[in-house]
Design a protein around this nucleic acid. Structure first.
Lengths: 245, 245
DNA sequence: ACCTGAACACCGTTCAAGT
DNA sequence: ACCTGAACACCGTTCAAGT
C-alpha cells in the first residue's frame, strides 16, 4: 500500500545512474511510516555500529527509503536530530525509588550507576547527553535527585550545582572515553590495541617504569567492568571528602 | 620575495568568479612559509574563536593564502592535523619539579592543576587531548608522574591505570564541558544563558525545588573558578578515599 | 500533512602535474 | 621539496512544488 508512493524511486535504480548514490535501497529496511521515533532508533543503531560520524541525514534517509529532505519535516535540522538521540538516551535512565532511608552517599551512588547503565551501551553518542540533561524531562528528574542528595550532604545550592554538574559529566566521560575503534574491514580486530600496547612497552624503562608496568591496563581498562565501579567509588568518596570541608 | 609564487592566485581574484569562494584572501594573514607549526597555530586560533567545527582544511588553506591541497604535504589527513593540535596542547603542560617530599595527594593535585591550566584556554579542542596523552612526549611524562604517585598511594599497576586514566579524562571534561556558545552576530551576548536560566526557574516548584534553587549556578558554573577548584578537590579526595579500601 | 526535485555552498581527499 | 589544478564523492540545507 504505502509502496506506491515511491515507485519512482525504486524505478530509478535500474535507469539513470548519475545520482544513484543517494537513491533509497529498499533492501535495507522494510518501509514503515516515517516518524521521529523510527528515525531516532535507526540513528542510534547506526552510531552504535559505525560511530557518530556515520550518522548522516542522507544515510538515514536512504535506510528509510526516503529522500534526504523528508527528514526536515520531522526535525528542524541535524542538531535537533542529535538532541533527539540524547533525549532518548536519557529517557532510558531507570531512577531508583527515592528516599528509602539509605544514607545520601549510597543513594547518590545508585543514581549514578543507573545513569551509567543507560548510556553505557552507546558510547558513541554518550557525549550528546550532556546538553540535554537540563532539558529533557528525565534528565531534570535525575538532576533534581542528585542536587537534593547533595543538599542533604550539606552543600549550598551553588556548590551542589557545581558538584552535581561535574558528577553527571564525569559519568558520561566514563563511557564516552572508550576509545574502542569501530570494526573496519581492512584489519583484524584487536590489532590496534596490541600495537598500542607494544608501543608503550617499548618505551625507556628508566624514564617510564610506571607506564610500562601499567601498559596492558592502560590500553584496555576503559572496556573493563572494574574501571566503572572503581571510578564511581572515586566520585562518591570524593563528594564525601569535600562535604566535610 | 615569496610573494612571487602565488601571483596567479591573487590575479585570479579579479577575473573568473566561478570558484572564487575558496580563493586565497591575502588580507587575512601575511604570507609566510607554510609549516606544521604555523598551521597548528592558526587552527587553534580558529577553534578558540569559532569552535572546532570551523577548523577546516579549506579555511586554514585560505587563511594561509594557499590551496587546500597544500595542507596534505604537511599532514597526512585531517585527523593528523587534529592530532597535531592535541600534541601542541599537551606540550603546554608545565609539570612541577618531582619528588619535593610533599605527600602524594598534594603532588597529584598540583599535576592535575597544571594540566587544567594548559588546556583551560582552549575548551573547544580540549577533548582532542584524550587520544594523545599516551602518544605525545609530554603526555607520557604526565602519565608517568600520575601513575607513580598512585603506586605510592598503594594502588596496583592495574588500578593505577584505571584511576589515572579517569583522572586525566576528568580534568579534560572539566574544561571541555564548558557550554559557552561562540559569539554569533544575530543575538546579543548572554541571552542564551538568561533564557536557559528562565526556563529552569519556570519549572514546577513542587517537583523541581532543588533545580530551581540551583538554577543560576547550573547555567554558569562551568565558567566560574570555583567549579574547577572544587572538583579538583573532589577528584583528589576521591583517590584518597578509595586508596584506603 | 508529508514528501519529492533541483539546486547551492561547503566538506575531505586523490592524483597527476608543475616549479 | 613544496605547491597547484581539476575532479570526485559526500555533506547539510533551502525553496518551490507535488499529492
Amino acid at each position: 500500500m504505502t509502496d506506491v508512493i515511491h515507485l519512482a524511486a525504486t524505478g530509478g535504480r535500474t535507469g539513470c545512474t548519475s545520482y544513484s548514490w543517494w537513491m533509497p535501497k529498499r533492501s535495507d529496511t522494510t518501509r514503515t511510516r516515517l516518524s521521529r521515533e523510527s528515525i531516532v532508533a535507526s540513528a542510534i543503531d547506526l552510531a552504535d555500529a559505525e560511530g557518530l560520524e556515520a550518522v548522516t541525514i542522507r544515510r538515514l534517509a536512504q535506510q528509510h527509503g526516503v529522500t534526504p529532505m523528508a527528514m526536515y519535516w520531522h526535525f528542524n535540522d541535524k542538531d535537533s536530530l542529535l538532541d533527539g538521540l540524547a533525549e532518548h538516551l536519557i529517557a532510558g535512565v531507570e531512577l531508583p525509588e527515592p528516599g528509602d532511608g539509605a544514607a545520601w552517599d549510597v543513594q547518590l551512588r545508585l543514581i549514578l550507576e543507573r545513569f551509567l547503565e543507560a548510556i553505557r551501551p552507546h558510547p558513541a553518542i554518550a557525549a550528546l547527553a550532556m546538553r540535554q540533561i537540563l532539558a529533557a524531562e528525565s534528565g531534570l528528574q535525575m538532576a533534581e535527585r542528585v542536587l537534593g542528595l547533595l543538599r542533604q550532604a550539606g552543600f549550598s545550592a551553588v556548590k551542589a550545582a557545581e558538584v552535581g554538574t561535574f558528577l553527571m559529566c564525569a559519568v558520561i566521560t566514563l563511557v564516552a572515553s572508550d576509545p574502542s575503534p569501530f570494526p573496519r574491514a581492512d584489519d583484524e580486530p584487536g590489532q590496534a590495541v596490541r600495537d598500542k600496547r607494544a608501543r608503550l612497552e617499548a618505551l625507556s624503562p628508566e624514564r617510564y617504569p610506571n607506564v610500562i608496568a601499567s601498559a596492558p591496563a592502560l590500553v584496555t581498562c576503559r572496556e573493563q567492568d572494574g574501571y566503572f565501579g572503581l571510578n564511581l567509588d572515586l566520585l562518591v568518596q570524593g563528594v564525601r571528602g569535600i562535604s566535610r570541608d
